[in-house]
Amino acid sequence: MTIDLKEELCAVFAGALAEVVSTTTGLALDMVSTMQDDGFGEMVGIMNLNSKNRGLIFISAEEEDVRMLYSCMTGVPVEQVGEDDMSDTLCELVNMTAGSVKLRIKDPDYMFSLSSPFVIRGTDISMVTKKRVPVISRMLRGEKIAVKIKVVYS
């Protein structure tokens, strides 16, 4: 993957995530960094991207930020947001982001079909790959929340 293509895909995925969050919650997010680490937030929503270049999308955030996302989407007070609500929110965020990316992606080699998203939870979650694969990473931050997005193509 060329640096130009990697940057283009970065912009596409991060832009889609920012738009999805803004549309569904009203929260504005700005891209603040290119992450060099393999760290994730406490909750990670994951989807397999079925394409010629097989990929995975990870969207992660700390639990309190996921509660805030749910609260802003639904109007439910933060303190009333349950465990299932948080997992569902992250799954739907991944689903909508991937769907939005499909409209923006230009390179047919990186076009994909959606699959069922799922969530993992924990602290100090890291990703280890067996070989050097292109990893696209961005952190987006707003006044109330921060969200990380990673995309791995193999």
Binding site: T24, T74, V76, D88
Partner: peptide, 8 residues
Amino acid sequence: DSAVIRKV
């Protein structure tokens, strides 16, 4: 299948 979407 998403409870959050049903709620919205």
